[in-house]
Design a protein around this nucleic acid. Structure first.
Length: 262
DNA sequence: TGATATGTTTTACT
DNA sequence: CAGTAAAACATATC
């Protein structure tokens, strides 16, 4: 479930359970189209340890103390799982990092849209990707500039990783739902107050999901995430949850309390 | 069986 | 350049 909060929960698993352990080797899943580190790149990591982690938007990085970084993107369906030798390895494991002792880190990816690769410099990588600022660290002015000054649908702007990094389909819907903004409202049609409200909603929602370690069952019952189905009752106003395409993505929303005025 | 899916990238067109 | 749209990637699930 990989947007910014889910990616951060995955990063934290590395930070909490996999640092300062010597890498002994790797296990590869079946040969697939998933982009994984080459044998030479894996060899570079053997004998080293991860000593730090970073995240920018949906991109996760695990750094060796004085060498390359392992970069992980979870794609559409990827996840990370930490376990110990002797436990059942997870399904769809494409790459398993074997640490000395029993600790293991598995990169799972059922739909194979994720990527793992070795990079030398995180900031250079972010710049080369053209990623905007991390959505959780973005200031008011930068957010207002990115969202309020574009004619694009506000939902599409939120999803544009070059405007800001980390917001995906689920949490963009959640933020617009909370703010009462119709997903296809043009950015330029929102007033300053609505843009500021949306900024708070994006950061509050994703911050909350991170605080709950991306466990959706711990999120409030009236959040859209629990009612994301065409025809469901809107828990906030009694309307009917409806879906429509906005910018090529499915936008779940409540047409009764989400309007073009915000 | 067919529709749909949490993401990114590329290509084409306006 | 800004924006839109669609397709492709490979597979699972409803």
């Amino acid at each position: 479930m990989p947007e910014l909060p889910e990616s951060d929960a995955a990063r934290r698993r590395i930070a909490d359970h996999c640092l300062h352990r010597t890498i002994a080797g790797f296990d590869l899943g079946e040969v697939t189209h998933v982009q994984l580190p080459s044998e030479a790149e894996r060899e570079r990591l053997v004998g080293t340890q991860f000593s730090q982690t970073r995240r920018h938007g949906k991109y996760i990085f695990a750094g060796t103390s004085d060498g390359p970084w392992l970069h992980i993107h979870l794609g559409m369906s990827g996840s990370l799982r930490v376990y110990d030798e002797g436990e059942t390895p997870p399904d769809y494991a494409r790459l398993i990092v074997i640490f000395e002792g029993t600790r293991r880190l598995a990169f799972r990816d059922p739909r194979k849209f994720g990527r793992v690769k070795l990079i030398e410099d995180v900031d250079a990588f972010i710049a080369a990707k053209g990623l905007g600022p991390d959505a959780m660290k973005m200031g008011d002015n930068a957010f207002a500039q990115a969202i309020g000054s574009t004619k694009t649908a506000v939902k599409s702007a939120l999803l544009d990783q070059s405007k800001m990094a980390g917001v995906g389909n689920l949490w963009s819907d959640e933020a617009l739902y909370r703010c009462g903004i119709m997903p296809d409202t043009r950015g330029t049609d929102l007033d300053g107050k609505a843009v500021a409200h949306l900024h708070r909603a994006v950061q509050d929602i994703m911050g909350h999901v991170m605080a709950k370690n991306a466990d959706y069952s711990q999120l409030p019952a009236d959040w859209l995430i629990h009612h994301r189905k065409d025809g469901a009752d809107c828990p906030r106003c009694g309307g009917t949850i409806t879906k429509k395409k906005v910018g090529g993505r499915t936008a779940y929303h409540c047409p009764d309390h989400q309007t073009h005025a915000g």
